[in-house]
Design a protein around this nucleic acid. Structure first.
Length: 554
RNA sequence: GCACCCGUAGCUCAGUGGAUAGAGCACUGGUCUUCGGAACCAGGUGUCGUACGUUCGAAUCGUACCGGGUGUACCA
């Protein structure tokens, strides 16, 4: 359709322009263009005159039923009902046909529990992956976290202290579900962390333990007593991740543990040091920042010879590239890592120029609760992901009687609230609002779908299309016709909140239609049933993009 | 100090060059003898943080400032 306008401009003025059609307020029609305002300057003419010339030309085009000049020189375009049906039935263009993506998110550390930040990333990342897959791409979901390091040493120390010695057999007495095991490991961490702070002997032991743990990987020690304790509980962590991802019903990611990425990263560091792209400085290996680009200098290997997060991050990029040969890589992290990631990306692109323009970093804000507080692990009021889910489920139980639907509504509520904020800023998580049955929430849309399906079950006629729609019928079809454009935009911009805003507006439009238009038993039943059917299908499709179930009844 | 992000209605947020700046929540009143009322309609007194600038046109772009947050060499 924009090409129809481009052609008109070309014929009239012999100018090649890129025409962007926008969706104006409904009273102005389906599409609007400001092309005349842009051309007026170049042509040294009055914008309204230019607009009416273009509009005259467009009236002859088959693409539009109507073309009118409005305001300072906008051209408002209206399409036929028939064209509106075609738009409503159109599927989004496959923007990423054949493109190979890696999307890295969630990224929990082994030996720790997932908190709300992980929950947000897990859900947002999963939705993003769905959207991109839907646009024709191949998507590989990955995750990256620490299975070695000081936090692990604190944990192991805590276990040894708890057992009064190194005794892996004592693990048999620990509760056996993945969530209980993860919680137990957390208490061992707390024990170790406290000792590290307050007891200098313990601190020395833990620091030594840290080195020992790296050794388990280097020497592939799986049999010594301490190694058994480590490998067993490490596996417990991975089992817990799997159980958690099953609980929230997302696809699993491939986990890249730091123990594996560190050696890869160290190999790269060695190579790049020889090439002079990394420098030695005060005994450490650093990537020198570029002040003109405001890039910090960062340490890749410490003066003690240990790899930092930078090196491990380079290691993951190299491994993901080797495993999947991605065309595009998207990384989701908290926004506190924004500047840090700029340096890592700059280093990666310096080492391997072919990576330039293939990697995107999506930083997100903090999940904040109703009172505006940021839950802090230091203060002991950290919100574990599982606790958040539990408290939402409790609220849902008050409203949904059918126990078999509680889980679907619980997850719908949580996924929706995380998807509806534009990524980048903080996420305000108000539990009442999240579970609320009216307003812009997941449960509201699930209900909206169930209601539409109920109407469809009730009707016995054959659905039919009609090209002389009344006003409320047409406004619903018009809203439906925006769906594929909206999903394209959400995919292009990597922003899930467009989907939520649209679905909510769609439901509101439907409610207005439904208020005015009787369906079952009406003489226009067939036509209206066709619209209800499209509405239910669009709602279900949009919810499925968000990973939310669309129930038949609720 | 420098850099980045944020500042829009009482609250939570959309809108990032276009028409009278919009939603939800909350609050008030009303509609309909419910095809699932979890509905619909009506009601906003907003210095779009402030000031200058660019533009036919600025919440949106530029510059400076104010306020909040984050980052800034051996943590992740």
């Amino acid at each position: 359709m924009n090409t129809a306008v481009q052609d008109a401009v070309k014929q009239l003025y012999d100018i090649d322009v890129e025409v962007v059609l926008t969706r104006p307020e409904p009273q102005f029609g389906e599409y609007s263009t400001n092309i005349a305002l842009q051309l007026a300057g170049r042509l040294q003419r009055n914008p309204r005159e230019v607009a009416s010339e273009i509009a005259e030309r467009l009236k002859q085009s088959e693409a539009f039923a109507q073309a009118e000049v409005a305001g300072p020189g906008f051209i408002n375009l209206r399409v036929s009902d028939q064209a509106l049906y075609a738009l409503a039935d159109a599927t989004a263009r496959p923007l990423n046909e054949g493109v190979n993506y890696v999307i890295e998110y969630s990224c929990p550390n082994a030996f720790k529990e997932l908190h709300t930040g992980h929950l947000y990333q897990t859900i947002f990342g999963d939705i993003l992956a769905r959207m991109i897959e839907r646009s024709g791409a191949t998507v590989h979901r990955t995750s990256f976290g620490g299975d070695v390091g000081l936090h692990v040493a604190k944990c192991l120390w805590g276990m040894v202290a708890e057992f009064g010695g190194i005794d892996a057999a004592r693990l048999d007495a620990v509760e056996s579900t993945p969530f209980e095991r993860a919680a137990w490991i957390s208490t061992m961490y707390v024990k170790g962390a406290a000792a590290y702070e307050n007891d200098s002997d313990a601190k020395a032991e833990i620091d030594q333990l840290n080195v020992t743990i790296y050794g388990f990987h280097a020497t592939n020690d799986r049999d010594s007593a301490l190694a058994k304790l480590y490998w067993t509980t490490r596996q417990w962590s991975f089992d817990y991740f799997d159980a958690f991802y099953d609980l929230v019903k997302v696809d699993h990611m491939r986990y890249y543990p730091e123990s594996a990425t560190a050696p890869t990263g160290m190999g790269v560091v060695k190579e790049q040091l020889a090439k002079g792209r990394l420098k030695e400085s005060d005994g450490a290996v650093v990537f020198e920042g570029d002040e003109s680009k405001h890039l910090h200098t960062r340490v890749f290997v410490t003066s003690k010879g240990l790899p930092t997060y930078e090196t491990k991050d380079i290691g993951v990029i190299w491994q993901e590239k080797a495993d999947y040969n991605f065309d595009k890589r998207i990384l989701i992290t908290g926004n506190d890592q924004f500047e840090y990631m700029r340096v890592v990306f700059a280093a990666a692109e310096t080492f391997r120029p072919e990576l330039a323009n293939t990697m995107t970093h999506l930083p997100h804000g903090t999940v904040r609760f109703g009172d505006g507080s940021k839950m802090s692990s230091r203060l002991g009021n950290v919100a574990r992901a599982a606790d958040v889910i539990d408290s939402v489920r409790e609220k849902v139980r008050e409203l949904v009687k059918d126990e078999s639907q509680v889980e679907s509504v619980t997850l719908g509520a949580i996924k929706y609230v995380f998807a509806k904020y534009r990524i980048g800023g903080d996420i305000s998580f108000d539990i009442e609002e999240t579970v609320s049955l009216n307003g812009n929430s997941g449960p509201y849309l699930q209900y909206a779908h169930a209601r539409a399906r109920s109407i469809m079950r009730k009707s016995t006629v054959e659905a039919a299309d009609d090209v002389t729609l009344d006003e409320s019928e047409r406004s619903l079809l018009r809203k439906l016709s925006e769906y594929s454009e909206m999903t394209e935009r959400a995919t292009r911009e990597l922003m899930t909140h467009h989907i939520c805003n649209y679905l909510y507006e769609l439901a509101q439009t439907f409610n207005r239609f439904y208020e005015k238009s009787h369906i079952v038993g009406d003489e226009r039943e067939a036509v209206r049933l066709g619209l209800v059917r499209r509405y239910a299908a669009t709602l279900a499709d949009g919810l499925s993009l968000l990973g939310i179930e669309a129930p038949e009844q609720l």
